[in-house]
Amino acid sequence: MKVAQLVIGGDTAGGQIVALAVARAARARGDEVVFCSPSRGPFTRLVEAEGMPVFDIDVSRTFKLGGVLRLARELRRRRVDVLHTHGALASNVLSRVAGRAARVPVVSHLHIENHLPAARTRAGALRRLDNWSAGLAARILVVSEHTKRALEQQGYPAKRLEVVPNGVHVAYSGNSTGRSLRSELGIPDRTPLVLEIARLCDVKGQRELIDAVASLEGVYAVLVGEDLEQGGRYRELLEHRIAASGAASRIVLAGHRPDARALLEEVDIFALPSWIEGMPITVLEAMAHGRPVVATPVGGTGEVVVDGETGLLVPPHDSAALARALGELAADPVRARRLGEAGRRRVELHFSEDAMTRRILEVYDELAA
């Protein structure tokens, strides 16, 4: 079987991480995998380094109809058996049309619900177009019950939606001392260290996290991620906020880190105070590494983090509540470790990468039968 994975861009994000996990599992059983992307970046370089070809197709965030024709031609030319897409609204619509034109079944994998523009006329047109194109997909997978409900409310038929929760590999040693990261960044030993891994943008809650950590004497934070949407302007805004907070010595904007996930072994708390989410891979990875999570109950996050059992949930946009939760765990490392261990067990039981990839490969086989 030959599978094409279509991603929304060349940078590393949740959809790309899922696509790569599925691609590796497919190759392990003998399938051939190619990737399609509208841009190049760290993720596409990783894919090519693993021996999977990447071809450029611009069906991303805008409705570029030329991409439909090119994608359909490439699917036919490469004799693809299944097209698995990990996109947003525009790329979902266009890739479904391309798949139908090429007579290739499309697995449309939605990692978050659609967030339509405020203008009612345009939002209504996009909603109708997306709902229509959903009928062209052979299967529609969603990452959480929350996403499923949101798409049903938008107009997707409930019987077409299957929840396949995101999953990660559980590889927790529990032996890291954290000295490498602390030494590199000049963070004192035995001080509470908070980590966030996310692109730098409003909806990931970095401003609230900066304000919360600044109010907690002796607590340090490392924010890993790049400003992919505003060309560095949002990072500058955060830098000014850190400088004005009086906590510049305790809060680090670390940018892109190839070792981002390894850093989970070296911190005390993981935070993700997002405004919107699908089912965040970074939260699952933090839990898999036995780290307590402080997050917001948005999207599928509340299906992963059990408040008071595997982490703490706080309202979005509330830096004071975020500070209280971080402060509680920073002051009680025994409780923090207990929550982290419970989180690791929860991921192992309910959100494993093996379970996710196994179900998706079954979907491929059902379509090929």
Rank of each mutant, 00 (worst) to 15 (best):
G30P: 00
R27E: 15
V33D: 00
R27Y: 11
L83P: 06
L75E: 03
G30T: 11
R337F: 07
V18W: 08
H111V: 00
L329N: 07
A254R: 10
L141K: 08
A23F: 05
L326N: 12
S249I: 03
H350Y: 12
P42F: 09
V59F: 10
R344H: 10
A214N: 08
V33A: 05
P316C: 09
T310P: 08
A102H: 06
E362P: 03
Q5W: 04
G51H: 14
E226A: 14
R324W: 03
D318M: 03
I112V: 13
V59P: 02
V213G: 11
I251M: 06
E32N: 06
L116N: 08
G205D: 07
G255V: 07
G290K: 01
L326W: 04
N131P: 11
E328M: 13
L116A: 04
I187A: 00
P192W: 06
L237A: 06
A336R: 08
V80D: 04
A323Y: 02
S39W: 13
Y172C: 15
K159S: 15
I112G: 14
T191M: 02
A158N: 06
F35T: 01
R182C: 07
R179E: 14
P157L: 04
A368Q: 08
G9C: 09
G87F: 10
E277S: 10
R344I: 11
G300M: 02
A212Y: 02
Y156A: 09
W275C: 03
D354H: 14
E184L: 06
R344Q: 15
E309A: 10
L223V: 00
Q230F: 11
A118G: 12
E309C: 05
E152C: 08
I269R: 01
V194W: 07
F55R: 05
A150L: 11
L161I: 08
D307P: 12
V106T: 05
R100W: 09
Y220S: 07
L209K: 12
K148N: 13
D56K: 02
K148T: 12
A248L: 01
